[in-house]
């Protein structure tokens, strides 16, 4: 009896809850850390970027008005489904990042735990960063956080899953929707993560994942007038950082600058969440 031939996966983009190939028809070869062929990934174009922004904008109204409790449960569900695919992620992270099996396991587990951590923030953030304001007059006055809108995330290049999850989760937990450009060299965990998203009750369009070159797609996202914020986590080239910030200034996008050498295993603070939040203050007179 001959050995069974494995069924390989076609790695595609994730846009609006569907898995299209790049409209450009392009793909690029992905290898493991040692240079061995792993797969052909779709190479997203600027048009794919625009499609993804459209999908993210369309999803914003629904996602941002879910109750925080519900968003927390959805994020927790993502963690559950990710855990269920642990073996697959360990294999992909190990191959992509050149990690030993045990180190890859640690990294995948940290990604799952990170999702659980952020899931719990959904219905607590408003109390921590908002509140009643004691104004000098007969007014009830309170401030609440509100999601900024569509966040374009240029994901970390090295940390293919943990870094990716650590940038997506804080953006979506508060109700933003996202367009994510994955690590260029290590895109496979990102596409598998999109399969997790697709099966975890995350509405289509809330997370859109493009594989490809952030230096190519990034400028189009940075200058897109329907994108509200930009996370530059994965950009290392200082000139590109500056150019992207300049483009982002056109519609005053909120920009989260890269912090080279970020330790993605470290406990995150609130910053990645508050970077993509607006504070809304409401006044009403008190009287009879």
């Amino acid at each position: 009896m001959s050995e069974r031939l494995e069924v390989r996966k076609t790695y595609k983009l994730y846009v609006g809850g569907a898995f299209p190939r790049s409209e450009s028809g392009r793909s690029y070869e992905v290898t493991d850390a040692k240079g061995k062929f792993l797969a052909n990934a779709s190479q997203a174009s600027r048009k794919d970027g625009r499609d993804a922004v459209g999908a993210a904008r369309k999803a914003f109204g629904g996602w941002s008005t879910r109750t925080p409790y519900n968003r927390g449960q959805v994020l927790y569900r993502v963690a559950e489904v990710l855990e269920g695919r642990r073996a697959q992620f360990v294999e992909e992270v190990s191959a992509s990042e050149g990690l030993s099996r045990s180190k890859a396991e640690t990294s995948v587990d940290a990604a799952t735990d990170r999702l659980v951590w952020y899931a719990g923030w959904a219905d607590k953030l408003a109390q921590v960063v908002g509140g009643a304001n004691p104004v000098a007059g007969p007014y009830f006055n309170f401030s609440l956080p509100d999601p900024t809108g569509v966040v374009a995330i240029l994901a970390p290049q090295d940390s293919s899953l943990l870094g990716l999850v650590s940038t997506i989760a804080p953006a979506i937990v508060s109700g933003n929707t996202t367009v994510v450009v994955s690590s260029y060299q290590r895109p496979l965990p990102a596409i598998t993560l999109s399969e997790v998203m697709a099966t975890s009750d995350v509405p289509g369009g809330v997370v859109n994942i493009l594989t490809g070159d952030a230096a190519e797609i990034g400028p189009w996202l940075a200058s897109h007038m329907d994108v509200n914020a930009l996370d530059l986590a994965g950009i290392e080239d200082a000139d590109l950082v500056r150019d992207l910030e300049v483009a982002a200034a056109e519609n005053l996008k909120r920009v989260l600058r890269p912090a080279p050498g970020t330790d993605w295993t470290a406990q995150p603070g609130l910053e990645r969440m508050t970077a993509f939040l607006e504070t809304k203050t409401v006044w009403h007179p008190i009287g009879i």
Partner: peptide, 18 residues
């Protein structure tokens, strides 16, 4: 989608109010 919403009032400012 606005940073300050005044309900049944307008143009109020206070150092305690973002």
């Amino acid at each position: 989608r606005a940073g300050v919403v005044w309900a049944n009032t307008f143009n109020r400012f206070d150092p305690a109010s973002p």
